[in-house]
Design a protein around this nucleic acid. Structure first.
Lengths: 345, 345
DNA sequence: TTGTACGCGTTATCAC
DNA sequence: GTGATAACGCGTACAA
């Protein structure tokens, strides 16, 4: 199959390349009879248009580029799965890159995707620097951009966020309702990769507000910083256990860190929730698998992916009319065993 | 930034487009002085070559295409992460597609990737039909293909496999050594998507051999079939529990199904390992997180990714000299609590 | 309703 | 060492 081209098909049908091109791209002006003839020749010969030539001419790609900050975090893969599903229905492929919690890689991925002329960009988490996106958006002819869980302050960037402040508030209030007062928090990183994740600050604020509502004075010694990964949760929990009076409960800013915390609690010979209660955030699939099951806040993963696909569809269909959106989703408390106060205490 | 081209750079430097092209591509024949001048102009103007035009001319892509059968299974993402890391060092991007355990999607992904002129293909798991790959490999000018955990019987397809027979044998022998005799197995699907995963049959064979070694007669009622997913493991375990005499131990063909089995055991009011011991396969990260920790067979995920990248590098560097490889890796038993016989029983 | 001819930005092949 | 120029395969004015 040495590079079948438009010309080959045209010759075979006795028509011009323009006609074949029109049929392939569904132009309306071809007569039904020639269309049929050409179409069957295309199918029969197994002709596939050269995307390079096509892209060179149209200056448009054929895939949606996606950058996630951590491919091994199930939250991201769940969102991507939903996004891919919706995109598939619209006939778009998906070009997925992992920035591995590194801005340099994220920036490189963005550049690569742009070079490859994607038809839209989806940035999930804190994977690309604000200034990099800014610079790209400033270019004329840029493709639609959707950011998920990252509140880029850039005109023209669509944003899908989750009301993590409310989620964190609910989570902390739940712990307080269980009777806990010394509630620690393992937050996301204040600096570097991940620090700009929308939920990071939000979750911290929600935690603070819930404490305030209950008249509990926040204790800085009960605050630890992680990096949204399992190992980061472990380190943070070790610091919390080392620091004087042990917390009664821990609210972690995501499930991966919550899992890390649980492992350290167990290592220390303590039990969850009997000695220390734990609540996470995201509701990744394994949260239901661990024992005790992890109480957590369920992110609307499927909705986020579907909404991103919808925005892309709208922007591609009518670039002029589609307006930039900034939408916030809710997140719900899922109570499992890790946060339940043992009866009789 | 309205589409900066070679010509723009050439004009600015007062040289020809050919020279600029040569500098950009590191051709050896440009004088050091012009090279310097051109290079700095390129940097200064922020010129980036148009990949469409380049691809049209060279008939080569700039990314490696990867298809996995389940993006939400951590085994796959761990392999992809390692692969991406190695590929990055060689300057290749990674185009990741999820076939979602569906052959039609996998085939579509393959076609898309080929259309996009990837520079190599990596197929992980049972994501693309044998005949589809066969047909592609038959084309002249096809790119190198590496299959992981799928033993395509096709000349020219590189294969990276894991000795799952040995792994399953070790796992089952471990259970026997703990004193268990009624050992059930939750295997992969015998038909449809996933059935051709290399490890599926292998793991079954290893299980059988270990039983035979110990003089245990295999009981067909202790055999259940899953689909390599969490829900599949649950259903299989329900069938095992429903079927008369309860097994003492369960060997699941992957961790996701093992997790599903554990959840059903717990639902039934039984304990792991006290009432039923469980062993999985893969050693996904959460296997260490659950409680009890899941005893499992550790797949060499990092090695698989790195090896795939190495093969690709070799084939691209010297297509003629590089030979097709079929390599088998080992897998090791990781003992955690889920398989330990309670003391005194 | 169809065909002709040009150009997209790049690389490769030559002459100089 | 360097520059002109012809492809690469496609879409699309514009002519017929």
């Amino acid at each position: 199959m040495p590079a079948l081209t438009l010309k080959d098909v045209a010759q075979r049908c006795g028509v011009s390349t323009a006609t074949v091109s029109a049929v392939v791209n569904g132009a309306p002006w071809v007569s039904d009879v020639t269309r049929g003839r050409v179409q069957s020749a295309v199918d029969e010969m197994g002709y596939r248009p050269n995307q390079f030539a096509r892209g060179l001419k149209t200056r448009r790609g054929y895939a949606v580029g996606v950058i996630v900050s951590d491919l091994t975090n199930p939250f991201f893969t769940e969102v991507v799965r939903s996004l891919g599903h919706a995109l598939r229905e619209d006939g778009w492929a998906l070009f997925l890159c992992d920035s591995d919690h590194r801005f340099d890689l994220g920036d490189g991925n963005l550049r690569r995707l742009i070079d490859g002329h994607v038809v839209a960009l989806v940035l999930i988490g804190d994977s690309v620097r604000e200034e990099t996106v800014q610079r790209y958006i400033a270019r004329k002819g840029h493709v639609p951009v959707v950011a998920i869980e990252r509140d880029y302050d850039i005109d023209g960037v669509n944003r899908l966020l989750v009301d993590s402040e409310h989620g964190a508030h609910t989570a902390t209030r739940h712990l307080i309702a269980q009777g806990y007062r010394r509630i620690a928090m393992i937050g996301g990183p204040r600096q570097g990769a991940g620090s700009a994740t929308y939920g990071r600050e939000q979750r911290y604020l929600g935690y603070r507000r819930a404490l305030a509502d209950a008249g509990i004075k926040p204790d800085p010694k009960l605050l630890a910083e992680g990096n949204f990964r399992y190992a980061g949760g472990q380190e943070a929990m070790r610091r919390l256990l080392a620091g004087g009076q042990r917390p009664e409960a821990v609210f972690a800013a995501n499930d991966m860190m919550a899992f890390g915390a649980v492992s350290v609690i167990h290592e220390a010979g303590l039990r969850v929730p009997d000695d220390i209660a734990v609540v996470g955030f995201d509701d990744v699939p394994s949260a239901a698998l661990t024992s005790p099951g992890l109480t957590t806040i369920a992110m609307p993963k499927t909705d986020l992916g579907a909404a991103a696909a919808a925005i892309i569809g709208r922007h591609i269909a009518a670039p002029a009319r589609a307006e930039t959106v900034r939408r916030t989703f809710g997140a719900e408390l899922v109570v499992r065993q890790s946060s339940l106060r043992p009866i009789g205490r």
